[in-house]
Structures are given as structure tokens and as C-alpha cells.
């Protein structure tokens, strides 16, 4: 299962993309209550949004973005566009998903 969920809908030439990503978004400032150790930072740093292989948005996130982050953006496009989202975190993990605009 992908870590990404995308809903992309077109209306009057604008495509609204709504995405949810499953990720802990750990700030690095919290401590484990049992051991007292700091929980290391683990968060998504970059999300790239493409429409039909053309980049429309590059997002830079810091640790202050909520757990299981949500992202919305809007671009000029049409039904059937292939919207692709790719995320990359500070540990080098990544995932990507392509979804068709409805």
C-alpha cells in the first residue's frame, strides 16, 4: 500500500489536488517517556507535485508540519491529467504515487 492518498478534481479549468501522506513527522524534540531518550527527528522534507510529468509545485516541510501531513494545491489543468506526488524524508526514505484527475 502506498503511503500517499491523492484526490484530484477538475472544475472550470482548475485542478484541486488534495493529498494525505502517512508519516510520523517526528520533530526530534520529543522524549520517549519510558526511556527518557530523545526521539530522533524523522520528517518529510520535500514533496514534488507533477502534472503530466511537468513540475507544478515543490514543497519544503520542516518538522513543524503535522503527523500524517495533508497538502492541498491548485493548478491549471484538465480531467485525465496524471498527477504525481513524490515525497522524500530526512532519512532518505521516499514514496510516490500517480493519480488521474477526475
Amino acid at each position: 500500500m502506498s503511503t500517499i492518498k491523492i484526490r484530484a478534481k477538475e472544475s472550470n479549468g482548475s485542478v484541486t489536488v488534495k493529498a494525505l501522506i502517512k508519516h510520523p513527522m517526528e520533530t526530534g524534540q520529543r522524549t520517549d517517556k519510558k526511556t527518557g531518550d530523545k526521539i530522533p527527528a524523522h520528517f518529510i522534507q520535500e514533496v514534488v507535485g507533477k502534472a503530466n510529468n511537468e513540475e507544478v509545485i515543490t514543497v519544503h516541510w520542516g518538522p513543524a508540519v503535522s503527523k500524517n501531513p495533508y497538502l492541498t494545491f491548485v493548478y491549471n489543468g484538465s480531467k485525465g491529467d496524471k498527477v504525481e506526488l513524490t515525497w522524500l524524508d530526512n532519512k532518505g526514505n521516499k514514496d510516490s504515487l500517480i493519480s488521474e484527475v477526475k
Binding site: 484541486t16 511537468e54 509545485i57 515543490t58 514543497v59 497538502l71 492541498t72 494545491f73
Partner: peptide, 16 residues
């Protein structure tokens, strides 16, 4: 907290 670089195709709308 976060930054969003937009292309000429994007509209000035973001949410998080």
C-alpha cells in the same frame, strides 16, 4: 514551518 514553490501553472492556493 513550510515553504511552497509554485510554477506558472499553479494558482496561489495552498493548504496544510
Amino acid at each position: 514551518s513550510s515553504g511552497y514553490n509554485l510554477s506558472s501553472k499553479s494558482k496561489g492556493v495552498i493548504g496544510t
